[in-house]
Simulated assay, not measured.
Amino acid sequence: AAAVAAIAFGQRAVVVDANVERVVARLFAIGTPLPAARPAIRAAADRITPDARAGDFAQAMMDLGATICTPRNPACGLCPLREDCAAFATADPAAFPVKPAKKPKPHRTGHGWWMERDGHVWLVRRPERGLLGGMRALPSGTWGDAPDPTPPVDAEWRTLAEPIGHVFTHFSLALRVHHAHVDAQPDGEGEWWPISGLDEAGLPTLFARAAAAVRKERDARN
């Protein structure tokens, strides 16, 4: 709306899009992280917006941000505002505007079960909705901070010495993998998949790494 007012109707209006925000944050070296810095950036933009030809000024600032004062590797050598730019004086203009600190990802634990019988391993389909939806996987239960679950069948279980680590978009996971030869049929829906053809099962990375770790330990033991 401000851009329309300034460019189309010649009114004095403070235009702050993403490009102008970046130029102004650097021009004044505004060190408050976004988004909290936006009132200060807008106030600074207001101070330098002229009464005359505000539309030309807005377009110039937007073009400056789009072509020279870019997010990465700004071309400060070509910038007409270089001598007055507080961020240029810091020798690290790309550090502005200051981005908010990333929140640490929560960490979860889980348990996966490798159940082997007659050269096959028991695989299940993950629920259609949710992470890795609809993909084949080792049975793994809920991922969280719950205590160690009860094994799905009675067997002589071994646990890999190191958990399988994986980072998802919103959290990191340490999957404790337990493996055993079993005689009983596990409860629930699943399928016995030939271990020799496991590469064709389409396991997601987390479970492919878990399977590889179990097979490596099993081969070393044999």
Results as ranks from 00 to 15, higher is better:
Ala6Pro: 08
Phe9Ser: 11
Ala13His: 09
Val14Pro: 12
Val16Leu: 11
Asp17His: 10
Asp17Phe: 05
Asp17Cys: 09
Asn19Asp: 12
Asn19Val: 12
Asn19Trp: 07
Arg22Ser: 11
Arg22Cys: 07
Val23Glu: 05
Val24Leu: 12
Ala29Gln: 04
Ile30Gln: 01
Gly31His: 04
Thr32Arg: 13
Thr32Pro: 01
Pro33Leu: 08
Ala36Ile: 08
Ala36Asn: 07
Ala37Ser: 15
Arg38Cys: 07
Pro39Trp: 08
Pro39Ser: 08
Ala40Asp: 12
Ile41Lys: 05
Ala44His: 08
Ala45Ile: 08
Asp46Ser: 14
Arg47Ser: 15
Ile48Asp: 12
Arg53Gly: 04
Ala54Asn: 05
Gly55Arg: 07
Ala58Pro: 06
Ala58Arg: 13
Gln59Tyr: 02
Met61Lys: 07
Asp63Gly: 09
Gly65Glu: 06
Thr67Val: 12
Cys69Tyr: 00
Ala75Leu: 13
Cys76Ser: 09
Leu78Cys: 09
Leu78Trp: 08
Cys79Ile: 09
Leu81Met: 13
Ala86Phe: 13
Ala87Asp: 02
Ala89Asp: 06
Ala89Phe: 00
Ala91Lys: 11
Asp92Ser: 13
Lys103Trp: 01
Pro104Leu: 01
Pro106Gly: 02
His107Val: 10
Thr109Glu: 14
His111Gln: 14
His111Glu: 10
Trp114His: 00
Val124Gln: 12
Val124Asp: 09
Arg125Val: 09
Arg126His: 11
Glu128Gln: 14
Arg129Glu: 15
Ala137His: 06
Pro139His: 05
Trp143Lys: 03
Pro149Trp: 06
Pro149His: 01
Glu156Phe: 08
Arg158Met: 05
Arg158Gly: 04
Arg158Pro: 00
Thr159Trp: 01
Thr159Ala: 09
Ala161Lys: 13
Ile164Asp: 00
Gly165Ser: 14
His166Ser: 01
Val167Ile: 12
Phe168Lys: 09
Phe168Pro: 10
Thr169Tyr: 05
Ala174Arg: 10
Leu175Met: 15
Leu175Trp: 03
Arg176Asn: 10
His179Thr: 12
His179Asn: 00
Ala180Ser: 02
Ala184Asn: 07
Ala184Cys: 06
Gln185Thr: 15
Gln185Arg: 11
Pro186Glu: 04
Pro186Asp: 05
Gly190Gln: 03
Glu191Ser: 14
Trp192His: 08
Trp192Asp: 06
Ser196Asn: 12
Gly197Gln: 14
Glu200Met: 11
Leu203Ser: 02
Pro204Met: 09
Phe207Ser: 01
Ala208Pro: 04
Ala211Lys: 02
Glu217Pro: 00
Glu217Gln: 14
Ala220Lys: 04
Asn222Arg: 15
